[in-house]
């Protein structure tokens, strides 16, 4: 992200640099492409572990691969209904 100074005084990222940065990100994403069945298994195992402690709203559980600062991240949104009593 260009700074305010850069934006005001027009120091622009060169097209080759933009292409390289975009490519790096998209390749990280491509290379981390996790096959559907593996993703589902991961989801199930995460659920199993978490269910020991909390009750989860499985209908609204979302696990996905996302871009993060300089890399990729496994992002999970796990709605908790309540904490397990025991």
């Amino acid at each position: 992200m260009p700074s305010l100074f850069e934006r005001l005084f027009g120091k622009r990222e060169k097209p080759a640099e933009t292409a390289k940065n975009r490519l790096k990100l998209v390749l990280m994403h491509d290379r981390a492409d996790i096959p559907g069945p593996m993703m589902e298994q991961m989801r199930q195992e995460i659920l199993t572990v978490l269910s020991k402690y909390v009750v989860i709203d499985e209908q609204h559980l979302d696990v996905s691969i996302d871009k993060a600062d300089g890399g990729i991240a496994l992002v999970a949104s796990i709605p908790i209904v309540r904490v397990n009593a025991d």
Binding site: K14, A16, A19, K20
Partner: peptide, 16 residues
């Protein structure tokens, strides 16, 4: 174009 940094250089391609 590479010289003007308008096109990916060979080093960029290799790096990526």
């Amino acid at each position: 174009m590479v010289k003007n940094q308008e096109m990916l250089a060979v080093e960029d391609v290799q790096d990526v």
